[in-house]
């Protein structure tokens, strides 16, 4: 008898969805995975379950208050939290703004930017506030595993998920963790 399906959550915070694309890149192996896992909360599906999950695959770092609230929620919700890709692990490209202040960033874009006709810094209450800098996940929550890469290869996702399903310690082979 097969094991119960793993409940998986995926999310993209301050990321570009590239890691999600790579996840989809597993192509026909998704059919194989469909027997092992179930996506319960993900931009790839319509469901938004709040119930407890086995694995959370989080792409992107943290650049605003919404990111942080979500991440804290995911940490609560998931038994195993995985930092997926360079941005989740190190902050990545969005973290390039860390050498400037928030004010400098916003002013450069919304006051002095090219073709700006009504210079003003957006202040709609609906817009999440930016954090002082872009953080990697592990600076706010405990991260159980990291999938390196920009993006991590599809095969790395497959190796991780199948290992966790089988109760094995995930061990990425060399091809999936070298990028030279």
């Amino acid at each position: 008898m097969s094991k119960a399906k793993l409940k998986i959550l995926t999310s993209s915070l301050a990321g570009c969805f590239g890691c999600h694309m790579s996840l989809l890149d597993m192509d026909e192996r998704w059919l194989e995975l469909a027997d092992l896992v179930e996506l319960v909360r993900s931009p790839l599906v319509d469901t938004r379950s709040q119930s407890r999950c086995d694995i959370g695959l989080i792409e992107g770092g943290l650049c605003n208050e919404e990111n942080i609230h979500l991440l804290l929620e995911f940490r609560e919700q998931c038994k195993i939290l995985v930092a997926v890709g360079a941005c989740a692990i190190n902050g990545g490209v969005p973290a390039l703004r860390n050498r400037y202040s928030v004010a400098d960033c916003l002013e450069a874009v919304y006051l002095h930017g090219l073709n700006v006709t009504q210079p003003q810094i957006p202040s709609d209450a609906e817009l999440p506030l930016l954090t002082d800098k872009v953080y990697p996940l592990q600076e706010w929550v405990k991260v159980d595993y990291s999938l390196p890469g920009c993006p991590p290869p599809a095969d790395a996702f497959f190796q991780l998920i199948s290992a966790l399903h089988d109760g094995r310690e995930p061990d990425l082979n060399y091809v999936n963790r070298h990028f030279d």
Partner: peptide, 19 residues
């Protein structure tokens, strides 16, 4: 503990000031 709320308030300080 992970007093993330307090940290978050601090991390948002520059943006709040700006707004």
């Amino acid at each position: 503990g992970d007093d993330n709320e307090a940290r978050l308030v601090q991390a948002l300080q520059p943006a709040v000031q700006l707004r």
